[in-house]
Amino acid sequence: MSAETRPVVTAAAPESRTGALALTAVVGALLIGGAGVALVQQGLVDGGVLAGQGWLTSTVAWLDATTAATAAAVMILVAVLGLVLLLAAVLPRRRAELPLPGAPGVVVEPGDLARIASATAETVDGVLTATSVASRRRVTVDVESTGAAHVPAAVRGAVAERFESIGLDVAVGARDAVRGSGRQQSRTELPPHGGTDA
């Protein structure tokens, strides 16, 4: 008896965990760059190279003319913005990957779930192409088929069985579109079944 053949799946590239830090760095760089430009413009005005009033001088004059309430509001706004950026940089992000049962230290990314689902769906009789989107607990498979009535249920069953075989508890939904007349027409949709939505 030959061994069971599994669809070949290419692993997704690891997701970067530095998104918040990158955003903070960009905002910080923009603020520093803006301050530098303002200082250069002020220096050129003071040196007589540029006509008019320097931006820093104008800012100071505006602050002098503002009321205490307006100044307090501006300071509070700046403080809140700084706090938000600080929290975004230091707070841990929610982990996107799922630990693989029975394999300590091994995780599966949502992109891997989508690849597994699509590769498995394409092994179902009547499926022409398959694409999938996935989160930690939910996968939706969109297939283009020959129009056989069994396709949506068969796809959902095959994908769910594949996830169960590797110990993953994931809800699986399937949507079928029939190829024909040069365009896809919606045929059947089965909502996610099994797993625990999150």
Results as ranks from 00 to 15, higher is better:
A69S: 13
A20H: 03
L21S: 11
P7M: 00
G194M: 08
G28Y: 03
E4A: 11
V106P: 07
L31G: 06
V143G: 05
D112A: 12
A13E: 04
L190I: 03
V40K: 04
V124G: 01
R175H: 07
A68Y: 01
L87Y: 08
V139M: 10
D64V: 13
G28S: 04
R115Y: 07
T18K: 13
L23G: 07
A89Q: 11
A153M: 14
P192V: 15
A117R: 03
V141K: 12
G47R: 05
L31M: 10
V170C: 09
M75R: 14
R137V: 11
G43T: 02
G48D: 04
L56M: 02
Q184W: 08
G194I: 11
V45L: 12
L83M: 09
S145F: 00
T146R: 01
I32V: 15
R136A: 07
I116T: 14
A198K: 08
G43H: 07
A153V: 13
A35T: 08
L128S: 13
L98A: 00
G126A: 05
E161H: 01
A177I: 02
S16M: 06
L56Q: 04
S58Q: 11
L86W: 09
T120C: 02
P101S: 02
S135P: 07
R115M: 08
P152E: 07
G182V: 07
A89S: 12
S165F: 08
A121W: 08
D125P: 05
T131P: 00
Q42R: 03
P7D: 01
V141H: 10
E15V: 12
T59R: 14
E122Q: 15
P192R: 15
R187G: 01
S132G: 11
V45D: 12
T24R: 12
P191N: 01
V40P: 02
T18W: 14
V37R: 12
